[in-house]
Design a protein around this nucleic acid. Structure first.
Lengths: 123, 123
DNA sequence: CTCGGACTTGGAGTGCACTCCAGGTCAAGG
DNA sequence: CCTTGACCTGGAGTGCACTCCAAGTCCGAG
């Protein structure tokens, strides 16, 4: 229950096993994942929770290198909360700007779609 | 007024001259851009309008290859409007799903931000 | 006539984020 | 004991979308 193989972790997180290893190698996780005596990775619930946060950051467009920076701050423990906050706030800014831009472009595209729909309303 | 150099077109569209040449080479434009006797490109208002549409599609995440397909349809002229419509509608679907996903992830990140803000409300 | 600067080309290079491969280990089932 | 399948590693490969380079052309200013 508190210990999943990489295949299970991949299924739970929606990432591939490849990507999970890649994230670990690249310093996106808080620490190396625990191993079974066989050397196979065993993911805890905490691991999965962190990976979900990473997924959220990535899904909103944060570059790997910034996720790594954030992970480093969290790893370093108490005392840098304001830095973490600043990083997240900066990211939030970027995401909101992007959402606004995409939304406005989408409206323009919708306009184009409406033209085509009016052109052949019966087709 | 109806004839801009590549540098001017770059400035107007927000793309680089490199990217404008690249788009032309890659079949994203409706036809080869006109040339001055010197061989230099001359962009018309129509060119710019089309490039803006391309920019909107790109900015909303449409892959180059799909933009090329759409350009090919428009280039082929009347008779395939329903195909164009289908392509745009499919893209719209994708974009809206993405917007929803990003928005929901952003809400989760906001939640995290709120935690940090409550942690050190005076800092 | 010479220079600087904007343009041209084909093709190579870059950065990002995976994605895969070869060769190996390990535990369980037949 | 042998095979199967899931896992391991370092390092190479992939796809995308640019981005840049070298070598050349053209034009206006001095």
């Amino acid at each position: 229950m508190t210990s999943l193989t990489i295949a299970e972790a991949a299924e739970r997180t929606g990432l591939t096993a490849h990507t999970l290893r890649y994230y670990e190698r690249d310093g996106l996780l808080l620490h190396a994942v625990e191993r079974a005596p066989s050397g196979h990775r065993r993911y805890t619930d905490d691991d999965l929770r962190w990976i979900e946060m990473v997924t959220r950051l990535r899904a909103t467009g944060m570059p790997i290198r910034d996720v790594r920076r954030y992970a480093a701050l969290v790893r370093d423990g108490d005392g840098n909360e304001s830095e973490r906050l600043a990083l997240l706030l900066a990211h939030r800014e970027v995401v909101e700007r992007q959402l606004a831009e995409v939304t406005s472009h989408l409206r323009a595209i919708d306009h184009k779609i409406a033209l085509y729909e009016n052109l052949a309303p019966a087709s």
